[in-house]
């Protein structure tokens, strides 16, 4: 939100927390966010024994992030175009 929307910190935290349905404090709590990221498919950190092959990661997760946060992500839009995905994914 800061990088491509130029939002100040407070506004950006509120926006993301609202879209994720969590409190602003939850955003910096790795325990809370681990579950939120799993539930929404936003990608998590794989650590050898604890990998997530059946969950969204990398580009897959960015598709979810674009949808959940309602932002255009350049690499997601280009992936959708190159892969011939629907107009919705490119929006």
């Amino acid at each position: 939100m800061q990088m491509t929307r130029g939002m100040r910190l407070k506004e950006a935290k509120s926006y993301v927390a609202g879209k994720l349905g969590v409190s602003v404090a939850d955003l910096a709590d790795p325990i809370a966010m681990h579950d939120v990221r799993r539930d929404l498919g936003l990608g998590r950190i794989p650590v050898q024994e604890l990998t997530y092959p059946t969950h969204a990661g990398a580009m897959e997760a960015k598709f979810r992030i674009a949808e959940v946060l309602d932002v255009r992500i350049n690499s997601v839009a280009r992936f959708a175009t190159h892969a011939g995905l629907g107009a919705r994914a490119r929006a």
Binding site: M3, T4, L42, G43, G57, A58, M59, A61, K62, I65, S75, F79
Partner: peptide, 10 residues
């Protein structure tokens, strides 16, 4: 890199 990362990359 974009295919493999989640964090924004400039």
């Amino acid at each position: 890199a974009q295919l493999n990362l989640i964090a924004p990359l400039q």
